[in-house]
Amino acid sequence: MTKAAAPAKPTAGELELLRVLWPLGPATVKQVHQAMQQERADVTYATVLRQMQLMHMKGLLKRDDSERSHVYAPALSQNMLQTRLLKELIHKAFSGSGKALVMAALRKHVTQEEREEIRQFLHGDEQ
């Protein structure tokens, strides 16, 4: 099976695993499993192994098999994947308008504290 040029779009479960792997950096299945157990005690080693193998086949993870324990790393940085997913969301749900996305987020999904941070960011950009 050949890998696509761009990694597949991750599922919710795959994103959960990536959120654990990004701060860890390249890691073995055992290391990822231990980190995931801190949030979900019920997750099994076999489940993490199977998921990481599938993610490697989909192109979401890179794997170094030079050592006895394979070491996995995300194929894309967190920022790169978020940017790619955001572009897709803007295109599909907001007719390509970044402004529409921001306005929708500001209306319902931003706390007052976050609004103030955004205000400060925008004010700093204008100078």
Results as ranks from 00 to 15, higher is better:
38 Q>I: 04
15 L>W: 07
20 V>S: 08
69 S>W: 07
30 K>M: 10
66 S>W: 06
105 A>Q: 02
93 A>R: 15
18 L>D: 05
113 E>H: 13
124 G>V: 03
104 A>M: 05
55 M>C: 13
16 E>S: 01
34 Q>T: 15
53 Q>S: 07
46 A>T: 14
53 Q>A: 09
44 T>M: 08
82 Q>P: 05
96 G>E: 03
92 K>P: 14
60 L>K: 10
11 T>Y: 10
101 L>H: 10
94 F>T: 15
1 M>C: 11
120 Q>V: 11
108 K>I: 07
124 G>R: 15
108 K>D: 07
103 M>N: 15
25 G>L: 06
66 S>P: 02
19 R>S: 00
18 L>K: 11
47 T>I: 10
115 R>E: 08
127 Q>A: 14
125 D>F: 04
44 T>F: 08
60 L>F: 12
117 E>D: 14
3 K>L: 13
115 R>G: 01
57 M>H: 15
65 D>C: 13
122 L>E: 03
83 T>R: 04
63 R>Q: 08
106 L>G: 02
68 R>S: 15
104 A>N: 08
56 H>S: 03
69 S>H: 06
113 E>W: 15
60 L>S: 06
101 L>P: 12
25 G>W: 04
29 V>W: 01
56 H>P: 04
54 L>K: 14
1 M>D: 10
62 K>D: 00
96 G>Q: 06
112 Q>P: 05
4 A>P: 03
90 I>M: 09
108 K>W: 14
85 L>V: 06
35 A>C: 08
80 M>N: 09
63 R>W: 00
4 A>H: 12
